[in-house]
């Protein structure tokens, strides 16, 4: 089975990944809910994964896909610990609004 890069230029995938990453950055910048910010971080990780897969298909090299596999494992660990921290924060101060979580700011 031929991959799509024979009919779609690689730069389109670069642009798509950049756009998804940018949307994730925008979400981190203007949402206040810590869980949504987490989801935007996942979105950014996935944009990078998509780019790695595209370059792996471009070069015919499996290393890029192995790297995506590692990123997925790291993302799973990060989400598990991060959500546990968020639930504990909620249990203690009854909010996950990042404007309330400013004790470490100054």
């Amino acid at each position: 089975m031929n991959n799509i890069l024979h009919v779609v230029p690689l730069s389109y995938y670069v642009a798509l990944s950049s756009l998804l990453f940018t949307i994730g950055v925008m979400g981190v910048l203007f949402r206040r809910n810590a869980i949504i910010i987490f989801m935007c971080i996942e979105l950014m990780l996935n944009a990078v994964n998509l780019l790695l897969t595209a370059f792996s298909a471009q070069h015919g090299d499996a290393s890029g896909q192995v790297m995506v596999f590692f990123i997925m494992a790291v993302a799973a660990a990060e989400v598990a610990v991060g959500l546990a921290i968020l639930v504990m924060i909620y249990n203690n101060i009854r909010t996950v609004d990042i404007n309330e979580l400013n004790k470490l700011k100054w």
């Binding site: 995938y13 998804l20 996935n46 994964n49 998509l50 897969t53 595209a54 792996s56 896909q65 596999f69």
Partner: peptide
């Protein structure tokens, strides 16, 4: 995004 992986011939991913 998973369907993009299929298009890029990465079925395992």
């Amino acid at each position: 995004i998973g369907c993009h992986y299929l298009l890029l011939n990465a079925q395992f991913l």
